[in-house]
Design a protein around this nucleic acid. Structure first.
Length: 906
RNA sequence: GGGCGAGUAGCUCAGUUGGUUAGAGCGCUUCCCUUACAAGGAAGAAGUCGUAGGUUCGAGUCCUAUCUCGCCCACCA
C-alpha cells in the first residue's frame, strides 16, 4: 500500500481485530522457547506471568483493562527483547460471587431457588453460566490486545486444577496443618455460609446504642449495660465489669438475671472492660462476638448460640425462638421496655460488618468449619519478602504485607456453598473421617480400617475460592505432576495485580507456593492502583459511575485506553480515569499514524541508491543523538518498572522532537533530492522504527499496523535501504539499528548546536507573532554570531524556510558594527538577530525591550557568578559546575550581544 | 488505636541515586484549513511544589513537626 492509500485518520476499528487475529495465527504469543519445541533450550531463562484470573461472574471492567494493559506491556517488552515469554491466561470460578449471581439470575428468570433445583441441577446451570461468561471475557481480553498464550488457558475448576486442589488439601491435612472444629467465625446468614475475616467489610453506619438494666439476683440493684445488638442479650453468658471499678466491684461474683428469660449468669471481673466507655459494664455473648468469646474462654463461660444459620433466634431465646434477628431486636426491646428494664437509647455511629459479596450484615457465630493453621505457612512467606527473594513494587507495600503476615489468624477455608472444590474428606456414618485425593482412595483407607462395606459420605462443603487461586502460579503449569512446563516456566517472574487483593491472593500464593514447591512463586510483585472515576471516586455499580472499558475502546480505540492507563499510572497509586485524557491519547495514535504515512510516502519518492559521499546534517546528527538517549532512558525505566515515565518520554520525544522538528526539517532535506533525500529517508525510517518499537508495548495495534506498512514500503523501495538500515526482524525486537553517526563528540555537539538553532527559530517566530507579521511574508535578516556563524551558514536554507526569511536577503556574519536601519533586533543566546521590519519601529520601544532583556541576563549572570564563587564552586561535582559555567558563558554572550545592539541603537 | 499514601499551573496528574530557570494533557489568549496530521501547526499567559523548621554548597526530591484529604489493618460494648 502506498501512503496515499492509507486513510488520513488512523482507523482503529478496522485494524484491531485483524491485527490480533494475525498475531494469534502466527503463533506470536507462544513462548519462543518452550518444552516440546524444536531446539528447546532448558537453560534459557523465560519471562512468565500468570494472569490474575478474572471471575466468571460478569463482564470486563476497568480493573481488568488495567491489568491486561500492564501485563501485556511487560510481556511484549520482554518478548521484543528476545526473551522466551509466557503469559498464561485463565479464569476463576469465584465461588460465592458466581453462585450468588446464578442464584439471583434463577430467581429472576425462572423464579426458583437453588434448594428447589437441587445441587446437581444447580451446578449444571452454573457451568452453563460459566461457559457464557467465559466466552464473553475471553473475547474482551482479546479486544484489549492481551498477548496471552491461549493454548495454555486454564480454569480454576477444571480437571487438572481440581486435582491440584485436592493434592494441596491432602498434603496440608497429612501435615496436620488443616483441622476441623467449632470456632467463632463470620457467618453470612443470607448466603448461609461461613466467610473469612477478609471477606467482611466494615461500613460506618448510624445505629443505636441501647442502654438497659441487668438485675442482680436477690437484690433491687442492677448493673447498667449498653449494647448495639439487643437480640444477643438472649445469649449472654455473663456480665463483666472492670475488677477495680469502684461502682461495680461489689457485684463481682453475684448472679445477674438475663432480661425476659431470667436465666442466671455470673457477674465477672475482667480487665478487658473499659471503664470509660458506655456504662463501664459489658454483657458477654461468647457465641456471637469475638472479644466476648475470648473473655468467655478465660472465664470458662458456656457458649450459647442464640442465632441459627438463617440468623433466626434459636430455642435458647425462649419466647423469641424462630424470630428473625431484627424482628427479635424490636420485640425484645419493646418487652423489656414494658418491664422497665430499659434505660435509654442513643444514636450511635458504629462500624457494621457486612459481607463483601452479599452486602448483608454478618454475624459472628460458633460453627464447625475447616481451618488452615496459618502461622507455619506465614513465617516462610514473610521471610521470602524480608530477605528479598520476593520484591514488592512499590516498595512501601512491603510494610503492609509484613504487618498482615505478622498478625495473621487461622484461615477458615470451608464454605457452605455448592459452586467450588468439594472438600476431599469422607465420613463414615459414625463420623470417622478420611481425607484422600479421590473417593477410591478414601474407600481403600476405610476398608483397611473397618473392613468391607463401609458407607462413605463426602463432606458437603466446598473450599474458599482463594484456596485454589493460591495455587494458581504452579497448578496452571501442571502441578502436582512434574511437567516439563512446570520445570521450565516455574517460578514465574512477575505477579501483577491491584493492591486490593494483596492479602486475598498474593499473600496466599506466596504461602502456598513456598509450601508446595519449596520456591517463591514469583520474584516480583507489581501492584497497580485502582481506577477511579473522573471525580476521583471508587467505581461501583451502586454509585452508577462505572465506566465501561468497551465503550471507551469503541469510541477511542484500544491503544488510546491502554496508553492512558499505562502512562497515567504510578505503581500503587490510584488513577483517575478521564475520558479527555483518553481522547488526547487517541490523538497521539493518530499523530503516530500520520507521521508514519509521511515517512512511508517519503520512501516512495526517494532515490534508490547513494551516488556519492555525503555527510549527515546538523538535524540528522541531532535527532539520532536524541533517539539514542531515549532508547537508553527507556531501557533504564523499563528495568525499574517505571513504565509510565517511559511512555511519557517516548510520547514527548516522538511528538515534540521527531514530528515537530525533525520531520519539518526532513521535508526540506527531501526536497533537495539526490543523496540528501536518500540519507534523510534512511534516518526517518530508523527513528520511526525505533519509536514504534518503544511504543509497541503501550499501543500495540497502531504500531504493529504501521510497522507492517513501513516494512513493506522499505522493502519495496530498495535492497539498499534494507541493507543500509539493517535487517528487518520478524518480530519487533528491540535492537538498536547500526549507528549512522557513530562519533560521540559530534553527537554531543549536535545537541548543543541544534538547541541554539531551535532557539533562533523560536525567537524569530516569537517576534513575527508579536509584531503580527503575516505568515507568508518573507523578511530580510542579518544574523551575527561569533562562534556559530559557521553553523548558521550551513543551516541558512533550512532556517529561511522554517521562519519565512528571504533567503536572498539573509546575511550571516561574525560581528556586526552598525545596527542596520529599519531592523528590529533580538537576541537568541549567542546569536544576534536583526529582522527587517519596515513597519513603524519605535526606537524607544526597542530600547526598552532590549534593556529589559539585558537586565534579565545580568540578573542571571550575577546569580551564577555568586553561585560559582560560593561553596558550590568548591564542593559540587565537576560536571555540575561545568554545566553552570557553560550557562554563565551563555548569558554573558547574550548580554554582550544585547549591549552591542543597544550601542548601535544609540 | 496502628499503619500507608496524597497535597506541584484553573482542572487531572508526571517528576527514583538531591544538581540550582519545575513539566505534560485538558482548558485559556492570538494567529494559521502550509502538499503527514485541524484528532493539526506556530506563538503565548499561567505554579513562593500544603505549612513551619532542619540537613546540605544545593531540597519538589532527604529528616522532624504540623494541617488537610484518601486508603488499609484492628474492631469498644
Amino acid at each position: 500500500m502506498t501512503a496515499e492509500q492509507l486513510p488520513k485518520t488512523y482507523d482503529f476499528k478496522s485494524t484491531e481485530e485483524r491485527v490480533y487475529a494475525h498475531w494469534e495465527e502466527s503463533g506470536y504469543f507462544r513462548p519462543s522457547n518452550a518444552p516440546g519445541k524444536k531446539g528447546f533450550e532448558p537453560t534459557r531463562k523465560p519471562f512468565v506471568i500468570s494472569i490474575p484470573p478474572p471471575n466468571v461472574t460478569g463482564e470486563l471492567h476497568l480493573g481488568h483493562a488495567m491489568f491486561v494493559a500492564m501485563e501485556d506491556l511487560m510481556v511484549r517488552y520482554y518478548r521484543m527483547k528476545g526473551v522466551p515469554t509466557l503469559w498464561l491466561p485463565g479464569t476463576d470460578h469465584a465461588g460465592i460471587a458466581t453462585q450468588l449471581k446464578v442464584e439471583e439470575d434463577l430467581l429472576r428468570t425462572e423464579e426458583v431457588t437453588r434448594d428447589e433445583l437441587g445441587r446437581e441441577e444447580f451446578l449444571k446451570r452454573t457451568w452453563a453460566w460459566k461457559d457464557k461468561y467465559h466466552a464473553i471475557i475471553s473475547k474482551q481480553i482479546r479486544r484489549l490486545g492481551a498477548s496471552v498464550d491461549w493454548s495454555r488457558e486454564r480454569f480454576t475448576l477444571d480437571e487438572g486444577l481440581s486435582r491440584a486442589v485436592r493434592e494441596a488439601f491432602v498434603r496440608l491435612f497429612e501435615k496436620g496443618l488443616i483441622y476441623r472444629g467449632p470456632r467463632l467465625i463470620n457467618w453470612s446468614p443470607g448466603l448461609r455460609t461461613a466467610v473469612s475475616d477478609l471477606e467482611v467489610e466494615y461500613n460506618e453506619e448510624e445505629g443505636q446504642l441501647y442502654f438497659f438494666k441487668y438485675r442482680i439476683k436477690g437484690s433491687n440493684e442492677f448493673i447498667p449495660v449498653a449494647t448495639t445488638r439487643p437480640e444477643t442479650i438472649l445469649g449472654d453468658a455473663a456480665v463483666a465489669v472492670h475488677p477495680e471499678d469502684t461502682r461495680y466491684e461489689k457485684f463481682i461474683g453475684a448472679t445477674a438475671l438475663v432480661p425476659m428469660l431470667d436465666r442466671e449468669i455470673p457477674v465477672i471481673g475482667d480487665e478487658y472492660v473499659d471503664r470509660e466507655f458506655g456504662t463501664g459494664a459489658l454483657k458477654i455473648t461468647p457465641g456471637h462476638d469475638a472479644n466476648d468469646y475470648q473473655i468467655g474462654q478465660r472465664h470458662k463461660l458456656p457458649i450459647l448460640s442464640v442465632l441459627d444459620e438463617a440468623a433466626r433466634i434459636t430455642k435458647i431465646g425462649g419466647p423469641y425462638a424462630g424470630l428473625d434477628r431484627f424482628e427479635a431486636r424490636k420485640r425484645l426491646w419493646a418487652d423489656m421496655h414494658a418491664k422497665g428494664l430499659t434505660i435509654k437509647t442513643e444514636r450511635y455511629v458504629q462500624r457494621v460488618p457486612r459481607s463483601q459479596r452479599g452486602g448483608e450484615i454478618v454475624e459472628p457465630m460458633i460453627s464447625t468449619q475447616w481451618f488452615v493453621t496459618i502461622k507455619p505457612l506465614a513465617a516462610p512467606a514473610l521471610a521470602a519478602v524480608d530477605d528479598g527473594r520476593i520484591k514488592i513494587v512499590p516498595e512501601y507495600f512491603t510494610k503492609v504485607y509484613r504487618n498482615w503476615m505478622e498478625n495473621i489468624q487461622d484461615w477458615c477455608i470451608s464454605r457452605q456453598l455448592w459452586w467450588g472444590h468439594r472438600i476431599p474428606v469422607w465420613y463414615t456414618p459414625d463420623s470417622s473421617m478420611f481425607c484422600a485425593r479421590t473417593e477410591e482412595e478414601a474407600r481403600a483407607q476405610a476398608t483397611q480400617r473397618f473392613g468391607k462395606g463401609v458407607e462413605l459420605k463426602q463432606d458437603p462443603d466446598v473450599l474458599d475460592t482463594w484456596f485454589s487461586s493460591g495455587l494458581w502460579p504452579f497448578s496452571t503449569l501442571g502441578w502436582p505432576e512434574e511437567t516439563a512446563d512446570l520445570a521450565y516456566f516455574y517460578p514465574t517472574s512477575v505477579l501483577e495485580t491491584g493492591y486490593d487483593i494483596l492479602f486475598f491472593w498474593v499473600a496466599r500464593m506466596i504461602m502456598m507456593g513456598l509450601e508446595f514447591t519449596g520456591e517463591v512463586p514469583f520474584h516480583t510483585v507489581y501492584l497497580h492502583g485502582l481506577v477511579h472515576d473522573e471525580r476521583g471516586r471508587k467505581m461501583s455499580k451502586t454509585l452508577g459511575n462505572v465506566i465501561d472499558p468497551l465503550e471507551v475502546m469503541e469510541k477511542y480505540g484500544t491503544d488510546a485506553l491502554r496508553f492512558t492507563l499505562l502512562v497515567g499510572s504510578t505503581p500503587g497509586q490510584d488513577l483517575t480515569l478521564s475520558l479527555e485524557k483518553v481522547g488526547a491519547n487517541r490523538n497521539f495514535a493518530n499523530k503516530l499514524w500520520n507521521a508514519g504515512r509521511f515517512v512511508i510516502g517519503a520512501i516512495a519518492t526517494a532515490p534508490k541508491e547513494m551516488k556519492g559521499e555525503l555527510d549527515w546534517t546538523l538535524a540528522d546528527a541531532w535527532i539520532w543523538a536524541r533517539t539514542k538517549q531515549i532508547l537508553s532512558t527507556c531501557n533504564r525505566l523499563f528495568e525499574n518498572y517505571q513504565y509510565g515515565e517511559a511512555g511519557r518520554q517516548v510520547y514527548d520525544f516522538f511528538w515534540s522532537e521527531f514530528a515537530d522538528w525533525y520531520i519539518e526539517i526532513a521535508k526540506l532535506q527531501l526536497a533537495e533530492g539526490g543523496d540528501r533525500a536518500f540519507k534523510t529517508v534512511d534516518l526517518l525510517v530508523r527513528v520511526l522504527d525505533i519509536c514504534l518499537r518503544l511504543l509497541h508495548p503501550f499501543t500495540p495495534f497502531v504500531t504493529e499496523e504501521l510497522w507492517g506498512h513501513l516494512k513493506a514500503a522499505a522493502l519495496a523501495h530498495s535492497k539498499s535501504l534494507k541493507a543500509h538500515g539493517g535487517e528487518w526482524p520478524e518480530a519487533l525486537i528491540i535492537a538498536a539499528w547500526p549507528h549512522p553517526i557513530a562519533e560521540e563528540d559530534r553527537e554531543a555537539q549536535a545537541l548543543d548546536k541544534f538547541a541554539i538553532f531551535q532557539n533562533v527559530v523560536r525567537s524569530i517566530r516569537n517576534v513575527r507573532a508579536e509584531k503580527g507579521v503575516k505568515p507568508g511574508q518573507k523578511l530580510a535578516a542579518i544574523l551575527a554570531a561569533k562562534d556559530y556563524s559557521g553553523m548558521l551558514e550551513q543551516e541558512k536554507k533550512g532556517l529561511a524556510a522554517l521562519v519565512q526569511l528571504d533567503l536572498g536577503k539573509l546575511e550571516i556574519t561574525e560581528t556586526l558594527h552598525q545596527k542596520p536601519e529599519g531592523h528590529i533586533s533580538l537576541v537568541a543566546g549567542p546569536v544576534e538577530i536583526h529582522l527587517s521590519l519596515s513597519e513603524a519601529l519605535d526606537p524607544r520601544v526597542e530600547r526598552e525591550r532590549l534593556e529589559k532583556e539585558l537586565t534579565a541576563a545580568r540578573d542571571q549572570i550575577a546569580r551564577l557568578e555568586k553561585l560559582l564563587k560560593s561553596d558550590f564552586g568548591k564542593k559540587a561535582p565537576k560536571g555540575v559546575i561545568e554545566k553552570e559555567r557553560a550557562r554563565l558563558d551563555g548569558f554573558k554572550a547574550t548580554a554582550g550581544s544585547l549591549k552591542e545592539q543597544l550601542r548601535k541603537l544609540a
